[in-house]
């Protein structure tokens, strides 16, 4: 086990290094940082001073190490637009996106586990078909369309839910559904597949043969095993959702990191953009690492592969 943990952690660190190089590349691609930092009225010598001060005149690998050193101490640079440290900006907005991502994950799991189980009980039956149909529609509905439909129905016509902002928990309902609905099909398919496999497996047959009642078999034995892959998929999906909420945050005026990223892109504020990419990638790496370790603890076979 210790060897597995060590190996897995090493891979995670390497992945983070690779992602950091890509983020750095993004930043370098966005133009001459010294000119951008100096501002429009600056003279050439001030630009030259900044270039030297920030080591921008040195070879690229040296610059990268320099940048990496700063990043590791939590200094992700300064936003051109806000003129404040990027770390503060991201930290301020991360809770909104995290709240949205986690609640959407919860919504997706609560919706898809029962659906997946129901579908698996009678594969190819009409329930199964309906469930797969719903999953298919979920995958194909453009997010923004769903958002506007909900605003129209629940926001304007029925007046059940507030439309924009983050003032209360109710404000998160529509964004949560919109984001979660997009992630739900993946869970439904996995739960369904896992359940079908588990129900056909030897130990469930044995349990049945021992005379256990059907729903006890389903709930106690099959479901537990079917949920194992859900854990790792949940980690992956949360990573996706943190980065995929841009459209939803823009429509519902949730000023989280997704909105910040979009805004920074259209303001050419790439120190912020690279910081967000890096932050979300970190989340993803840590989450998948945690999920892998958790799975390895549950299922010894994984450690050997």
């Amino acid at each position: 086990m210790a060897g597995f943990v060590l190996r897995r952690c090493l891979v995670a660190v390497l992945v983070l290094l690779a992602v950091s190089m890509l983020s750095f590349g993004l930043l370098k691609l966005s133009g001459d940082l010294a000119t951008a930092m100096a501002g429009e009225q600056a003279g050439a010598d001030y630009v030259a001073f900044l270039r030297k001060e920030y080591g921008l005149d040195r070879p690229l690998p040296v610059q990268y190490l320099h940048w990496l050193g700063r990043t590791l101490t939590g200094d992700l640079g300064t936003s051109f637009y806000y003129a404040t440290p990027v770390t503060d900006l991201v930290a301020e907005r991360l809770p909104i996106t995290m709240t949205l991502g986690l609640s959407a994950l919860l919504f997706a799991v609560t919706l898809s586990v029962p659906l997946g189980v129901l579908a698996a009980l009678h594969p190819d039956g009409w329930i199964d078909r309906v469930v797969l149909g719903i999953a298919l529609l979920g995958q194909a509905t453009p997010t923004f369309w769903l958002c506007f439909l909900m605003i129209l129905l629940f926001g304007i016509n029925l007046r059940w839910l507030p439309i924009s902002g983050t003032a209360s928990a109710a404000h998160y309902v529509m964004p949560t559904v919109a984001l979660g609905y997009y992630a739900a099909p993946a869970f439904t398919r996995i739960v369904r597949a896992g359940m079908i496999e588990a129900l056909a497996s030897d130990y469930v047959r044995t349990a049945r043969a021992k005379g256990l009642r059907p729903h006890a078999v389903v709930l106690q034995h099959a479901l537990r095993n079917a949920l194992v892959p859900v854990v790792s998929v949940a980690a992956v999906q949360l990573g996706f959702m943190l980065g995929g909420s841009v459209v939803i945050e823009t429509i519902f005026a949730l000023h989280g990191v997704g909105y910040l990223a979009w805004q920074s892109i259209s303001q050419n504020d790439y120190p912020v953009v690279q910081a967000i990419v890096l932050t979300i990638a970190c989340f993803y790496v840590v989450l998948t690492l945690a999920a892998d370790l958790l799975n390895a603890a549950i299922d010894p076979r994984i450690r050997l592969s």
Partner: peptide, 16 residues
């Protein structure tokens, strides 16, 4: 997989 899909796509398209 660890790169956020939509964000990276937006960022690169925004740049190039």
């Amino acid at each position: 997989l660890s790169l956020p899909l939509v964000l990276v796509a937006l960022a690169v398209v925004g740049l190039i």
